[in-house]
Amino acid sequence: MAKNIWVFCEQRDGEIQNVALELLGVAHELAEKTNEKVNAVLLGHNVKDKAQMLIAHGADGVYVVDDENLEKFVTEPYAQAITHIAKKYEPNVILFGATSIGRDLAPRLSARLKTGLTADCTKLEMDEEGNLFMTRPAFGGNLFATIICPDSRPQMSTVRPGVMKKLEADASRAGEVVVEALEWDTSKFAVTVLEEVKAEKAEANIEDAKILVSCGRGVKNLESAQELASKLHGTVSASRTLVDAGLVDHARQVGQTGKTVRPEAYLAFGISGAIQHLAGMEESEFIVAVNTDKNAPIFKVANLGIVADAEAVFKNLNKLL
């Protein structure tokens, strides 16, 4: 019988991605419901030493395939490796980060393993029988659908980065590391990597910011937003309007087509709060909204809502701090 909850632990250049740790956190919660184990799946080349970190973050065991065919991400070798271990151990659930790697690999595997896959989940729940309830936004965040996969195993899902909470690392946790090897079907390796180039400029990582000064249509002068952000040791983010207008880089966009953030404080200036935007920030610990329109939907999610002109409030804040 299919058993245990697996997390595909994405690494890039040997560095475990944050989303992998977040997924171990949610997997841990789900596993408590059914007394299953959490297994990390770690694929790459010279990555075996990362297994301990995955155990510290909640994995009860780690399956490692360490091979030069897995040095750079290419779909087919990664799919072969996971298929090999999934057929051998028959997991109940496999979770992937909804990244450009997870969203490439997971659908390929779902077709190979002939099972269902739910994309971009923002909430996961489990019943006592081990059935997974996967909730995801649909229609640009206007609607939420809860999806089940009652008759096929493994139940598969990709999960948005930044939504789930990782556990505090605990170095005293113990877990088993199982190294797997497989016979590669190299006749299927038709894609060759000619080069891999990392982005030059370090993109602003709004997902890691403690405080976000977020700007929307009501903000014309981004310099005062930048000034406020540096005074607060925060980062500037923006709604889609400013990104589409070319005033702010896409990497700083919050919302359905941008990033999901949950900072300790989200300060929304001149953002009306379209549902697509709210989907990306409503989990923030503390939300302040400043907008001239007292009916703006952003006020529905704000802890402190102020009807005022964003620019004028910027000026006063910068004076005050």
């Binding site: 002939k114 099972t115 269902g116 896959l117 739910t118 309830f133 649909a138 965040g141 206007n142 609607l143 939420f144 659908a145 809860t146 999806i147 089940i148 996969c149 009652p150 008759d151 096929s152 549902i275 709210l278 989907a279 409503e282 529905k300 999610v301």
Partner: peptide
């Protein structure tokens, strides 16, 4: 279809 929609909901705040 292995996946089924169990329920849908509009956003509640």
């Amino acid at each position: 279809s292995p996946t089924k929609v169990k329920s849908t909901a509009t956003k509640q705040f």
